[in-house]
Design a protein around this nucleic acid. Structure first.
Length: 487
RNA sequence: GCCCCCAUCGUCUAGGGGACCAGGACGUAGCCCUUUCAAGGCUAAGACCGGGGUUCGAAUCCCCGUGGGGGCACCA
């Protein structure tokens, strides 16, 4: 039944992403998925999605959907998975219970495992001293039979050798050796018949012919136990690729529970999925040259396990924000416009939003910044008069009033209303009146926006606002300046 | 407590015995450009955890120390 198909491509790289359904995509998980995906793609291999839902108490309904959604959002397409049979299914662990039971029994027969009748927590390690072996591992076959017939529930535990040490080579961390005496007789099959992760991952990775087991570094120390399992079964050991942790800049854990964003959260915060993926790729891996901007497709061509780092990496929102800006600027104007549109207030639609987007694209770092940046188009906010003070433009409220008054007829008489004609007209006006261009533009820009920074200068704003609204706002500003100065 | 892992600018990193008085990026500061702010360009400050070895020579190799992280569940 669960026989391994004879494959010609024995060397075919097969990687897997095996999340448990928690309801969201943790940043660390996303990176694990990404690296596994990239390794498969780079080697023309197969990327598999497997759902690890062996914890009955922790399963969240709908959580599997979040996994699909997350992967799709990131652009990580899998070749085999629950909804994409590749002949190695089922790809959901709760549907493989009979398989685990069968292999657990096999292990008991070969002596690699035994039944344990202790109650939960009985074997908890003490504060000090070597951990003691489970008494049940020494139970006679008769004793076991007796307890079974009495209906006592049991778990199946791995029988770790008393002597010796276990050694393996990790693709990232190199050689690792652990004394067997340090390893505990971990539970393989729980009393509810479900396997533990520790057992299921070994059985599945073998049956699914995973060549590169990629996972977080937190599994590094239990890997010797998995090796012992592989050995007990007589299976060949896959290449292990343990990934360094992702932490925060203060060195603490990056955790959803502690309020740190998940992948989905980051997207809601205005980051582009592609920028997040790009950034995540660089947390723990480097291409070897100075490039930092990558599209997924480019990563697929150059990602290399050999260049994965050992030490944990801190997640920097600053750098992600910068990279997000890079990705935004790399978008076509139309693509950016489509992304920006949902962030524009309804009232903005009276204007040429396409043009607004053109001005916004180079200035947007996060999509969520957009509403605040365009709010003035809809309505000029209350602002202080010293907004008209600008040293570099040699401007103050007095001069501003002069300029606004004088430029009003210039604008009123302008027939062609676009950025170029506006700029030419105002520049000419300034030259003739003896003002620097900047001195003319500052009060107008301020009058039109009421804010310190705008996407585009005075004439760009005027073009978008249109002649009528522009003149109206300038008159308002004149009135405001007049009432303040008492003139 | 025991075991395992890690250690280059604040952060991400390049570096795998001489090409390093350590390179790039983010962030920070300044300048240029300029119709505000950005973007772009230029410049500056900023690191090999400490101590021993090995070697003609060490950021690179070894050992010890220190610091940080991870693991020791019928969770993954």
């Amino acid at each position: 039944m669960h026989r391994i198909a004879e494959r010609k491509e024995d060397f075919m790289v097969r990687t897997r992403f095996a999340p448990s359904p928690t309801g969201y995509m943790h940043i660390g998980n996303l990176r694990t998925a990404l690296y596994a995906y990239l390794t498969a793609r780079r080697n023309k291999g197969v990327f598999i999605l497997r759902i690890e839902d062996t914890d009955q108490e922790r399963n969240i309904p709908e959580a599997v959907a979040a996994i699909y959604k997350g992967l799709a959002l990131a652009g990580l397409t899998y070749d085999e998975g629950p909804d994409k049979d590749g002949g190695f299914g089922p790809y959901v662990q709760s549907e493989r219970l009979n398989i685990y039971r069968e292999y657990a029994e096999q292990l008991i027969s070969s002596g690699g495992a035994y039944r344990c009748f202790c109650k939960k927590g009985d074997l908890d390690v003490g504060e000090e001293g070597p951990k003691r072996r489970d008494p049940c591992r020494f139970l006679s076959p008769e004793g076991v039979q007796e307890k079974i017939s009495l209906g006592e529930s049991f778990v199946i535990r791995q029988r770790i050798p008393e002597e010796g040490s276990t050694h393996f080579v990790d693709a990232v961390y190199g050689e690792i050796t652990v004394e067997n005496s340090q390893l505990d007789d971990q539970v393989l099959l729980k009393s509810d018949g479900f396997p533990t992760y520790n057992f299921a991952n070994v059985v599945d990775d073998h049956l699914m012919e995973i060549t590169h087991v990629m996972r977080g570094q937190e599994y590094l120390s239990s890997t010797p136990k998995y090796n012992l399992l592989y050995e007990s079964f007589g299976w060949s050991i896959p290449t292990y690729v343990h990934l360094p942790l992702i932490i925060k800049e203060d060195g603490s854990k990056f955790s959803k529970r502690l309020g740190d964003p998940s992948f989905e959260d980051l997207v809601k915060m205005g980051y582009l999925p592609e920028a997040i993926v790009n950034y995540i790729a660089l947390l723990g891996w480097s291409p070897g040259d100075d490039r930092e901007f990558f599209h997924l497709k480019e990563l697929e061509a150059i990602f290399d396990i050999d260049r994965i780092n050992k030490s944990s990496a801190a997640f920097s929102f600053d750098k992600l924000t910068w990279l997000n800006g890079e990705h935004i600027r790399a978008l076509t104007p139309e693509a950016f416009h489509q992304l920006a549109l949902p962030y524009y207030p309804a009232a903005l639609l009276q204007y040429d939003t396409q043009k607004i987007s053109e001005l916004m694209q180079v200035r947007t770092e996060k999509l969520t910044d957009i509403p605040a940046m365009v709010a003035f188009f809809v309505a000029v906010p209350e602002y202080d008069l010293d907004m008209y003070v600008h040293e570099k433009s040699k401007c103050d409220p007095q001069i501003s009033l002069e300029i606004l008054r004088a430029s009003l007829p210039v604008l009123e008489n302008l027939d062609t209303w676009n950025n170029d004609s506006l700029f030419t007209a105002l520049k000419t006006f300034g030259t003739e009146a003896g003002y620097k261009t900047g001195t003319v533009m500052w009060p107008i820009r301020t009058a039109l926006s009421g804010v310190l920074a705008t996407p585009g200068g005075a004439t760009a704003l005027a073009e978008i606002l249109g002649k009528e609204e522009t003149l109206c706002r300038i008159k308002d500003a004149i009135a405001k300046l007049e009432s303040a100065s008492g003139v």
